[in-house]
């Protein structure tokens, strides 16, 4: 787990600079240097008066099992949101702004359905299976960025 700073909460008290044993927070970018940050050290997290520093876990707990019927109904909704999004994007040019607002809003709604449908954590087994499925389905298509899928498999 390495530390990260929420710059919106940081009140520049710079206690993190004082407590950090490695100088990881001594950066000009406003962020903490993850390569210097000690795994799980959390001295800066506890010392920060603004509550602006938090730890990002490397390993998350296993996702709770999702009930088949919940997943199915959430994906039915996602499908409907995607269909609505396609129609919203096909509205006439007199509705350009409405098109944009509906597109953005429907994207968030559809994403939330698949997120709660078992795809919250990129590190989960469900996502690995998803990536493998993509590789299988699109291996004939030379335009498919297969190297992106392979790199993701290595990283996650």
């Amino acid at each position: 787990m390495f530390a990260s700073r929420n710059v919106r909460l940081c009140t520049k008290d710079c206690i993190c600079l004082f407590v950090c044993p490695t100088g990881a927070t001594d950066t000009e970018s406003g962020q903490i240097d993850a390569s210097k940050c000690l795994d799980g050290c959390r001295l800066c997290v506890d010392a920060c008066p603004g509550g602006a520093i938090y730890l990002v876990p490397k390993n998350y707990p296993k996702p709770q099992p999702k009930h088949e019927d919940v997943v199915q109904t959430l994906f039915a909704l996602a499908e409907s949101k995607v269909k609505t999004r396609q129609l919203a994007n096909a509205l006439g040019d007199d509705h350009r702004l409405a098109r944009k607002a509906l597109d953005f809003s429907l994207e968030v709604l559809a994403e939330d359905c698949v997120r709660e449908g078992g795809y919250m954590l990129p590190q989960s087994a469900a996502v690995k299976e998803f990536l493998n499925g993509l590789k299988e389905r699109y291996r004939e298509d030379p335009a498919f960025p297969i190297e992106a899928v392979e790199r993701l498999r290595d990283l996650l």
């Binding site: 996602a78 499908e79 995607v82 269909k83 396609q86 994207e107 994403e111 698949v114 795809y119």
Partner: peptide, 9 residues
């Protein structure tokens, strides 16, 4: 369209 939101999510 669904694969797009899977990936943006």
């Amino acid at each position: 369209g669904e694969l797009t939101v899977m990936c943006t999510n």
